[in-house]
Design a binder for these strands. Structure first.
Length: 950
RNA sequence: GGGGUUGUGGUGGAACGGCAGACACGGAAGUCUUAAAAACUUCUGCUCGCAAGGGCGUGUGGGUUCGAGUCCCACCAACCCCA
């Protein structure tokens, strides 16, 4: 046997990447004669290194885009960088590198890494959100919204660090202190820019025209949090109105006190002298707490009485006004009516501070008494203590669907004390960020304090480059040359020093791809008319409620401001129906899961303790799995002790009974340990002594758990899988194929460095099979050739439908099966030259989207015309895929009992006859008649079946 | 507390309501080799049986159906989001 060249991915991959680029193979150009397909995968933040997670997100998306291209679509599949944000500023503070320098260096490096994937990105359309060329248009959009009443100036709480003289993001605040100096952070009201997000709340609840995963739709719906109810005006004794929103107007008569948020405007005014000190102390304390802390459900309720009273408008009851931190100024009106009998939080509060409880909804057969109730009743029941409404049934539904609520709303509207109202959990979009590395907000403050937008010809407001970033104060606010400017009248004015939320940049980047260098507008309407909307968007589900909702808002706002009018007109000129095409940015959305760190398994532990039944309750657990020799020694010692001392007792081993073995599984604090083949559960109580190598000092159960955990990859945990190393070792095609084969794409899962062998072997086998050359015999055995043709067409169907359904693992599995079939046929040696060449040709085409380099190389070696990526996808032929013979499965009550070979398409009568004649049927029937026979016809690859009902 | 997602061999994972475990990894035995690796062949859900063959199996318990991993109800567990 002659020595053939082995598969060496390194040599071929860079060769083809260069050639594809030189030939502009993946340039996407408008071509109205072809159907378009616009596929986008979420763009990365330029953190400096491409993560295996990027590969997992991008390469299957790339495979699908390549598939669509071979199917005849004109495909646009671009890439860019979401390049503004906090890490660049942190790098500047820590290492003195300018954010721009840090960012562009990272981008340069990541471009190279992205190219190594062998994706079909059209790099001429690359966009970088921190380029002035890009953020000019981000500013322009701000201005557009500002001028059309979609942007406004308002107050919001921020995390303020007095020490750093700056506003911090939530993730920069740890336990109420800033992460850098550990100095206190307080909640402070500041004037900021908002977009009118809520204006589109109802439209954002509509998902009828888009194909998005259910979990995302549900999360967005919950995030928007539409609730129907009423606004009711209470008055203080002094006559100041306090408006509250309630979803339960039917419980108004049970409102026995009111609670204001500590930040509420009226607090200062209504607080009595006697309560003033307690109130101001409480307000100061609330300012130090985050919203999450304040609203934590299991937290002890706190609050202070203001000394003031309000009048309940439905029954004129005089009720005390309290302040409490669980009422948020940002939700609803910042004030609530408290109905302790009907709301568990109000109930807890009332019991704690000994406030009155008046039952107002009572289910059949109950006799509630406010003094003795042990919990609030939030369900259905009859109204009591509610004046004229007594006896009305409240059915537990929300809004107008509840007749009691409906009747009360009508009544309070008549009385002029309230109004039907809809409240949203969604808040307006706060886009101001008090930091340097973002797109400047193009606003100037005139001397009189009013605002005006920077004129278009002065856009972009560029970030000054020679600033010092120290982490103290806002660099832009400290830069006099930036701050001092003139307004449109030429009078001295002050520039806005806040920059924009980076979600603003990422809300429209898929439009900039259309014409990355277009100067006249954010995008070229000619390109937009052809490519929009995005047909497929892929990315992580973690963006469910932020990015994906902002992008939807953005496109709706743009549509209403006429930004797509030109594109719509061009579409119509080309005879395309433009209706509704700009209502949503992404027609189809799919989320991939996350690749987790490699699971630790096989860790050997020595657990000492006492058996309780079959379970060992450990007092000491030592992990020795990191050291293979030590683990072996411990296992050997254990075997020794078992053989020499047949019945180990508590006394036989120092420290009590013990279990030595490999951890197979962990649930909470129970470890399942394999000791010489037996699975023994070991419970690890919190006070157990735990020894983990590499973690010095006494360890806790949590550390043990953490140590054994499947976990997110992070540098600190040392379990990062570096794609560059994998590419170096296996080649890009293997890494691509493994990521597609080894996981359910939607689920993701822990990395497994062993499983990649399957893909390595697959590509080696394919390589050998193809380079072995075609069989010499010109004509082969017709049956064998028919068989391989059938298998090829079955593979065409399976690979196509799998890729379309984002089921990449089954696509690769089908390709592996085809390889196995081809290899078996090759060994049999009954295939002629032409049939063989045709089969191999089809297999390479099917592989091209998944392993683009090796497919191109083999295609080239077989003498087919360049490039494989410009070929048509193999045409599926059902007749060629059809089997001639199949198996009739005979079942008894749904359980298979026998099978007989039958021709495909067997009829019902024939099948029944064969079934009853089968030995399996005769055995189970034992001479009796079946109750019923059910025939299930075969279809596709599914065999016909007969169910014998007995 | 509310909402969501997911529970299938030792592992990753397949299965329009129709033969559960495709395709792989790992493992076992064998072939080749001085040896090892690689490669190849066979076996590999559990269980009873020498075998032929049987029984049990998709987190648990019910239900719908001729037939349930798949649909419905309840429960348990893990994970995620919200509060």
């Amino acid at each position: 046997m002659t020595e053939r060249e082995r598969y060496q991915p390194k040599a071929i991959e860079s060769k083809w990447q260069q050639q594809w680029e030189a030939n502009e193979l993946y340039r996407a150009r408008v071509d109205w004669s072809k159907p378009k397909h616009y596929a986008v995968t979420m763009l990365p933040y330029p953190s400096g290194d491409l993560h295996i997670g990027h590969w997992f997100a991008m390469t299957p998306s790339d495979a699908r885009a390549r598939y669509m291209r071979m199917k005849g679509f004109n495909v646009l599949f671009p890439m860019g960088f979401d390049a503004f944000g906090l890490p660049a500023e942190n790098a500047a503070i820590q290492r003195g590198i300018h954010p721009a320098e840090w960012t562009y260096k990272n981008i340069e490096r990541m471009r190279g890494q992205l190219r190594s994937m062998g994706t079909m990105f059209d790099w001429q359309r690359e966009t970088v959100s921190c380029d002035p060329d890009y953020y000019k248009w981000t500013e322009w959009f701000f201005k557009l919204f500002y001028e059309n009443d979609l942007a406004y100036h308002g107050e919001a709480l921020v995390n303020w660090s007095e020490a750093l003289q700056t506003v911090l993001a939530n993730e920069q605040v740890i336990d109420g202190k800033d992460e850098r100096l550990g100095q206190p952070v307080i909640q402070k009201m500041m004037t900021q820019w908002f977009f009118r997000y809520k204006r589109y709340a109802d439209e954002l609840l509509e998902f009828d025209t888009i194909d998005w995963p259910d979990p995302i739709r549900i999360m967005q719906t919950n995030w928007i949090g539409r609730s129907e109810g009423a606004k009711v005006t209470f008055k203080t004794e002094a006559g100041d109105p306090i408006v509250v929103f309630t979803t339960r107007p039917d419980t108004l008569w049970g409102a026995t006190f009111m609670v204001l948020s500590p930040e509420h405007d009226l607090v200062e005014k209504i607080t009595t002298e006697a309560q003033r000190q307690a109130v101001s102390e409480y307000v100061a304390r609330a300012a130090r707490e985050t919203e999450i802390e304040r609203t934590a459900e299991n937290r002890e309720k706190t609050g202070v009485f203001t000394g003031a009273y309000a009048i309940n408008p439905v029954n004129q009851a005089r009720i005390p006004i309290w302040i409490a931190d669980y009422v948020l100024i940002t939700y609803g009106t910042g004030a609530i009516m408290a109905v302790p009998a009907g709301d568990h939080r109000d109930f807890d509060f009332a019991r704690k501070f000994d406030l009155e409880i008046v039952p107002i909804i009572q289910p059949e057969g109950e006799q509630f008494d406010g003094a003795t109730m042990t919990e609030a009743w939030e369900g259905a029941g009859y109204m009591i203590n509610s004046g004229a409404f007594n006896g009305t049934y409240s059915n537990g539904d929300k809004g107008r669907k509840n007749p009691a609520i409906s009747a009360v709303i009508d009544w309070i509207e008549e009385q002029g004390i309230g109004k039907e109202s809809v409240n949203y959990r969604l808040r307006d979009w706060l886009i101001s960020r008090q930091r340097y590395w973002g797109a400047p907000i193009p606003i100037v403050y005139r001397q009189d304090g009013t605002t005006e937008a920077v004129p278009d010809d002065k856009l972009p407001v560029e970030l000054p480059t020679d600033v010092k970033i120290t982490g103290v104060g806002n660099p832009l606010a400290q830069d006099a040359r930036f701050v001092n400017t003139v307004d449109s009248q030429g009078k001295p004015a002050r520039r806005e020093t806040d920059t924009m939320d980076t979600f603003m940049c990422s809300s429209w980047y898929f439009l900039r791809y259309l014409s990355a260098h277009y100067q006249a507008a954010p995008f070229d309407p000619e390109e937009a008319a052809y490519w929009l909307p995005v047909d497929v968007y892929t990315g992580g589900a973690e963006h469910a409620t932020m990015h994906l909702l902002y992008a939807r808002w953005f496109i709706k706002a743009m549509r209403d401001l006429g930004i797509f009018d030109d594109a719509t007109a061009i579409m119509r000129q080309h005879g395309r129906n433009a209706d509704g095409l700009f209502d949503e940015p992404f027609r189809l959305l799919r989320n991939q899961g996350q690749i987790l760190g490699e699971e630790r398994r096989g860790d050997t532990i020595v657990a000492t303790g006492r058996f309780e039944g079959s379970k060992l309750v450990a007092s000491r657990v030592e992990v020795i799995g990191d050291d293979a020799n030590k683990a072996q020694a411990a296992l050997a010692a254990e075997r020794e002790s078992v053989t020499t001392d047949a019945t180990p007792t508590a006394e036989s081993v120092l420290g009590g009974e013990r279990v030595v073995g490999e951890i197979i599984k962990r649930t909470e604090n129970i470890l399942n340990v394999n000791q010489n083949g037996d699975l023994i559960p070991v419970e690890v109580p919190t006070d157990a002594e735990i020894i983990i190598p590499n973690i010095p000092g006494p360890n806790t159960v949590n550390q043990l758990r953490h140590h054994l955990e499947i976990q997110r990859m992070s540098k600190s945990k040392g379990n990062v899988v570096n794609p560059d190393e994998l590419v170096e070792q296996y080649g890009a095609d293997t890494v691509r194929a493994y990521l597609m084969f080894g996981f359910d794409w939607v689920k993701g899962g822990p990395w497994d460095s062993q499983n990649i062998q399957g893909v390595v072997r697959w590509l080696n086998d394919v390589w050998e099979l193809v380079t072995a050359g075609a069989p010499a015999r010109a004509s082969g055995d017709p049956a064998a050739e028919r068989h391989i043709e059938r298998r090829v067409h079955q593979a065409v169907l399976k690979v196509s439908s799998s890729i379309e359904a984002f089921s990449f693992n089954t696509a690769v599995a089908a390709l592996m099966t085809l390889k196995n079939d081809l290899r078996a046929a090759f060994r049999e040696g009954k295939i002629g030259t032409d049939a063989w060449r045709e089969a191999v040709r089809a297999m390479l085409l099917l592989m091209a989207p998944i392993t683009p380099h090796v497919a191109e190389e083999m295609w080239n070696r077989l003498g087919f015309p360049y490039s494989i990526h410009q070929q048509d996808w193999p045409q599926y032929d059902a007749a060629k895929a059809a089997e001639e013979e199949t198996t009739l499965v005979i079942m008894k009550n749904g359980k298979p009992i026998d099978r007989v070979p039958v021709p495909v398409g067997i009829g019902e009568e024939e099948a029944k006859r064969l079934a009853l004649e089968s030995s399996g049927a005769r055995r189970v029937l034992n001479g009796d008649q079946p109750k019923k026979l059910i025939f299930i016809a075969g279809r596709g690859n599914v065999e016909p079946k007969i169910n014998i009902v007995i």
